[in-house]
Design a binder for these strands. Structure first.
Lengths: 239, 239
DNA sequence: GGTCAGAAAGTGATCAAATGACTTGGAGAG
DNA sequence: CTCTCCAAGTCATTTGATCACTTTCTGACC
């Protein structure tokens, strides 16, 4: 075995602190939205300096574990127990190829999710989906609301699959390039058609028909893919 | 439109700084492994205090954009342009269900990847895969090396797919629960059988046969899934 | 001339104390 | 009862100092 001479890695105090705060959140039963002790108090209790603690908190904020509000306090984030995080400082240019790659990666993931959801969705999941689609229908003219609602619908399906990893994959994939993903509404042509496809998918889920759900989801996503492939970035820029 | 009255969100100086450093990396042509100016120099140039700059750097380090080495300098990370990050401070317990969820999520992703790789893999991709499998064959008795090498093989396939998103998904999924994913070697039974399955997959890729590659990959991953489903966490704990 | 050890220089890590910016809650006035 | 203002609480940032680690250079020894 080669690890006898592995380098001695010393974890920095701030990384150590981040881990301990993370543990504290779990062991003290803090849930999403709960407020932690003040920064001054935590620095005192851990016996460290303010800037050191702030670095640890910054790390946890970056990971979505914490939500730090200036003047208010430090709160446990909604996604405090996430496996994956999307990169908030991504600087690459969002080419057509990248958007096509994204939709092509979503297709197998979402087909698996919808198939599982047809078997595992609870009444609550389905109710939430109905609610989302009702909200979408009321906002067919408001692209921001519509796009966000549609994405939430897709995420809800992944949640209903009962597979934690799939749910989190949809969470992060739906947060990538939100502006550009919203573009899909423009180039798809008919918001109503898009909406009807979502309604059809929900119907198949309610009917507990995995094969039909998969067929409809595939058709829906392949339609998105086709229009993306035909998209001319110069003719229809991202607004 | 509802955004006329959207809350005025003021970005903190540290988040602003993180974004600017991120831009600087791209616009100044820094590549992975390149060294940035010293913290003192950057603080002077940006006109900010040391701890503020450090917080921004911490954020970027958390995202894998930077690699900060005590006493040495600040370097651009290998994954500086990643879309997704796996959570280094995840504290959930890694149950059998979570491992099964992970493998079940990997199946559609890797089937799609291997199918695309059969069409798009370059000679270089295939050469790298051969190299990895040769390395695995030499290390069938060394679980750490073997597990890491096997995972690298899977990632290489995703890379060869030519789909950026799939490649990055495999990157993050393979980094989750490495200790526990290594368990698969124990409970799978035969490291040699596992290895032969990998060799078969590579053969199908070299033959440019997507259907065969998919069939073999599916068989391989379903085999892993089956043994995970049968796994008794009490009988074979994670070492 | 080559190698090794120690010291110096460079660089990151952490602390303490002070000031500025923001949020929340309470009191008083209309 | 509602609205405005102020005080208290809390986060955000700065400055300057000291400590911890890495890298490079120099000198001694073989």
């Amino acid at each position: 075995m080669s690890d006898v001479f592995a380098p001695v890695l010393r974890q920095s105090l701030t990384d150590d602190l981040a881990q301990r705060i993370r543990q504290l959140i779990e062991t003290s039963g803090y849930g999403a939205g709960d407020r932690l002790p003040t920064i001054a108090e935590m620095a005192r209790r851990f016996g460290v300096g303010h800037p050191t603690l702030r670095e640890a908190l910054k790390k946890l904020e970056t990971l979505g574990v914490l939500d730090i509000r200036h003047g208010s306090g430090v709160y446990v984030g909604k996604n405090h127990n996430t496996l994956l995080v999307s990169n908030p400082v991504f600087v690459g240019s969002v080419s057509r190829k990248l958007l096509v790659d994204l939709i092509e990666a979503r297709i197998p993931i979402e087909l698996k999710s919808v198939s599982l959801a047809a078997e595992h969705a609870t009444g609550e999941h389905l109710g939430e989906m109905r609610s989302l689609l009702a909200h979408a229908e009321e906002n067919l003219e408001d692209d921001d609301v519509l796009s966000a609602t549609n994405m939430a619908f897709h995420r809800q399906i992944a949640l209903a699959s009962g597979n934690t990893v799939l749910a989190q994959l949809l969470e992060v994939l739906s947060s990538l390039f939100q502006q550009e993903q919203r573009l899909i509404l423009d180039i798809f042509g008919s918001r109503r058609k898009d909406h009807f496809e979502h309604v059809g998918i929900l119907q198949a889920l309610e009917d507990r028909d995995p094969a039909l759900a998969v067929t409809r989801m595939r058709s829906h996503l392949e339609g998105v893919r086709e229009v993306l492939l035909k998209w001319d970035p110069n003719a229809t820029p991202v607004r």
